[in-house]
Computed example of a mutant assay.
Amino acid sequence: MQTPPTTVVAAAIATALLLSACAGMPKFDQQGLPAAVQVPTGHRVAMETVGAGEITYECKAKKDAADQFEWTFIGPDALLSDRSGKAVGKYFGPPATWQSNDGSKVTATQLAVAPAGAGNIPYQLVKANPSVGSGEMFGISHIQRVATKGGVAPAAPCAAAHVGSKQKVQYQADYIFWKAA
Rank of each mutant, 00 (worst) to 15 (best):
K166C: 07
A14G: 10
F92V: 09
Q99L: 03
G164A: 03
K86R: 10
A10S: 03
K168A: 06
A181V: 08
P115Q: 15
L79G: 11
N129C: 00
A10E: 03
F92S: 13
A66I: 00
A46S: 08
G53F: 04
M1W: 03
Q68N: 00
A108C: 07
K27H: 11
T148I: 04
A78L: 06
F92C: 01
I140C: 04
L125C: 07
C22H: 08
L17M: 11
A155F: 00
T49Q: 12
Q110H: 11
L80I: 05
V106L: 10
S141K: 13
T6H: 06
K90W: 06
K179M: 06
I13A: 12
G89T: 13
A36R: 15
A161I: 04
T3A: 13
L79Y: 05
C158V: 02
V45N: 09
G24W: 12
I55R: 07
S20E: 08
G151H: 00
Q167T: 06
S131C: 10
V50I: 15
P26Q: 15
S131K: 12
A65Y: 06
W178A: 10
C59M: 04
A128F: 02
A156M: 03
V132H: 03
T109C: 11
A87D: 02
D82V: 05
A65N: 14
R145P: 12
V132L: 13
Y123H: 12
V132W: 01
G164P: 04
G135C: 04
G164N: 05
K86S: 04
L19E: 15
V169E: 05
V163R: 00
S134Q: 10
Q110D: 12
A46W: 02
G89S: 13
A61R: 06
T148V: 01
K90R: 15
G133V: 10
S20H: 06
E48F: 05
G32C: 14
V126F: 04
L33N: 13
V152H: 01
G51Q: 06
S20G: 07
E70S: 05
Q170F: 00
A173P: 08
G89H: 14
G32K: 13
A10V: 02
A156I: 00
G150D: 12
F69D: 14
P115S: 13
R44T: 11
T41R: 15
R83A: 11
G53P: 01
